[in-house]
């Protein structure tokens, strides 16, 4: 389902979203694990399109196959043969996506033996950028990520929010057209989380990378996204696509506006329906 598009309210909308080749397109993507009888379907018939410079958020109950979908988009897991995954219009097979998408998993996964700066340049080092040059590039970005003066600190000396920013910076320095963020703020406390969300929005406004952001927080999904995708419980599939036409830049008080609350109500109802369905299914199954 699609909400009415109000052109005057959406300056952030990519102009050519309609006809240009989407950055990423998933057509009927499936992922099944196990054989015949004991087969579990993690992801079923997912269709989605992400346009260039778009910020798409994906919400769904836990265990809905979000991570499986994510790993497939990152190239870490091959989708089943019946669907196709297109990147910039070209179909991607077995691990071809590796190195094309900047991927940030839930845990920050910083290397404890590397300083903030050296953690940030990890992807650049893998690419073969000389260390000195990589460090210079990272050093220039430190203030933007709120890490000025922390270049030579080690991960254990940082707070949760800072660690997450280092991880984001590492993802950011790996300059790819598509950024995949898997619940990056999931482990943070509410206050830090709000600050990080707005900081991310500012960052996105400046750099305009294409983002696919997974979360299970509806507020976060609406606040950040141009588009919210709702996933069903297992077997996971994309149930609906909702355009968020809230004006940008969005400030923290936007969560109190009637438009926001209206969107939240609709999405909540959808997710609620979904979890009720799974609940019933599980009841029958057991």
């Amino acid at each position: 389902m699609k909400f009415m598009r109000d052109e005057t309210l959406s300056p952030a909308m990519p102009a050519a979203a309609g006809h240009a080749v989407p950055m990423l397109e998933l057509v009927n993507v499936w992922k099944r694990f196990g054989a015949a009888q004991a087969q579990t379907v993690a992801v079923s018939g997912v269709n989605l399109r992400i346009a260039k410079s778009e910020f798409v958020t994906l919400v769904g109950p836990s265990g809905c196959g979000k991570s499986t979908l994510f790993n497939m988009i990152a190239g870490l897991l091959a989708p089943d043969d019946d669907g196709s995954l297109l990147f910039g219009g070209a179909p991607q097979r077995n691990g071809q996506l590796l190195g094309k998408v900047s991927f940030m998993p839930q845990r920050d996964l910083l290397f404890p033996w590397r300083t903030v700066l050296d953690n940030a340049i990890l992807a650049l080092e893998v690419e073969g950028v000389p260390r000195k040059e990589a460090r210079e590039r990272a050093r220039a970005m430190l203030p933007e990520f709120g890490l000025a003066g922390f270049a030579d600190h080690y991960p254990h000396q940082l707070s949760g929010g800072m660690r997450q920013r280092v991880a984001l910076m590492r993802t950011f320095l790996f300059e790819r057209d598509l950024m995949l963020l898997d619940e990056p703020f999931g482990a943070l406390d509410a206050l830090t989380r709000t600050r990080m969300q707005h900081w991310l929005l500012e960052l996105w406004a400046r750099h305009r990378r294409t983002v696919l952001f997974i979360t299970h927080d509806i507020d976060e999904a609406i606040l950040l996204g141009d588009k919210v995708l709702v996933m069903t419980a297992r077997p996971g599939t994309v149930k609906s696509e909702t355009r968020i036409d809230l004006p940008r830049p969005r400030d923290p008080s936007i969560v109190l506006t009637p438009e926001f609350i209206d969107l939240k109500q609709r999405l909540l109802a959808e997710i609620e329906e979904e979890s009720r369905k799974t609940f019933a299914q599980e009841g029958i199954a057991s």
């Binding site: 870490l76 991927f103 998993p105 893998v126 690419e127």
Partner: peptide, 18 residues
């Protein structure tokens, strides 16, 4: 070795030696 860290390195396109 943490499998998630391995996945991260793979997503950066790291080969086995790296």
């Amino acid at each position: 070795c943490d499998p998630q860290r391995i996945a991260l390195m793979r997503s950066f396109g790291a080969n086995r030696l790296v």
